[in-house]
Amino acid sequence: MRYGTKDVLKGVDISIAQGEVVTLLGPNGAGKTTTIEILEGFRMRSAGEVTVLGVDPARGDEVWRSRLGVVLQSWRDHGRWKVRELLAHFASYYAPFREPWPVDDLIRTVGLAEHAQQRVSRLSGGQRRRLDVAIGIVGRPELLFLDEPTVGFDPEARREFHDLVHRLADLDTAILLTTHDLDEAEKLADRILILAGGRIIADGSADALSRRVSTEAEVKWSLGGERFVHAASDPTAFVRDLFKQHGDAVTDLEVRRASLEETYMRLVHEIESGAGETTLREFEEAAR
C-alpha cells in the first residue's frame, strides 16, 4: 500500500486460524486502519497480494461478503429503528447465502433482551456497541473484524463483551481485533500483532512477547518490615537464593515479567526512534 511516494505497508503478513482471536496493535498512523480496510475490501491496495478467505478482497463478491462480519466504531445510524427490527432486517441480507443467527437468540446472547423493542437512538453507548456486534455476527461470519469494540464501555459492559468474544471464538469464528487498550488485548488475544512503521514488528502471545522483550523480571519482597525491589535476569534462581538466605522472613513476594504495556511501549519506541531494525532482527532471531 502506498501513499504518494512513501510505502505505508511493507510485507505485512497476517494469518488467522478458525477460532483464533488476533489483536492488531500499533500507534496511530502505523497503518492499522489501512491494513484492516484493505482486508475488509473497503480500500484498494496499490501493490501486493491480499487473500481473505481465499479471495482477493478487491474482487470480493457478495458471497464472499456474506462470510465476513464487520464491526466499526463510527456508527450512529438507524436511530429510529427498534433493536429487534433492525437485527431482523440485517439477518435477511444473509438469508440467501447462509442460515442467519436466530434473532431473539442473538439478542439474548449480546444481552439486549430487555431492550429488544427500544429505539436504537435510546440505547447507551455500550448497548449500542453490543447491537453493532450483533449485526456484525448475525450472518455467522467465518471472519469477524472488530474495530475498537469497547470504547465508551463501563467495566461491567467490557467484561460482558469479553465473554462474548470468547464465546464467538468457541464457535470457530476467526477474529481480528484492533484496540488501543492493551489490557484488553492481553485478555482477549490468542496472538498479538504489533504494526509499526508499516510492518509487523511483533507476532506472538502476550506472554511470549514480554519474555522476548525483557530479559529481566522485577522481583519485590518484604523483609523485616522493609520493602525491596530487584531486577533479575534469572528470577527463579534469584528467588531460590533469597529463600536460602532469609527463609521464612521473606514475605509479600512478587515476581513480575514486563506487562504487555511495557513490552509494547519499548518495541514501538525503538521502531520510532530508528533503532527498529536491530530490534526487529533480534526478534526474528528469537522467533526461530
Binding site: 475488509e40 473497503f42 457478495e62 458471497v63 461478503r65 456474506s66 465476513l68 462480519g69 464487520v70 466499526l72 463510527s74 456508527w75 450512529r76 445510524d77 438507524h78 436511530g79 440485517f90 441480507y93 444473509y94 440467501p96 447465502f97 449485526i135 456484525g136 450472518g139
Partner: peptide, 20 residues
C-alpha cells in the same frame, strides 16, 4: 445525512447491502 451517520457504510458491510 446517512453517509455521515454510517448508514451507507453499514450497508456496505452486508451482502447486497448497497443495492438494498
Amino acid at each position: 445525512v446517512e453517509r455521515e451517520d454510517g448508514t451507507l457504510l453499514r450497508a456496505k458491510t452486508v451482502p447486497g447491502g448497497m443495492t438494498a
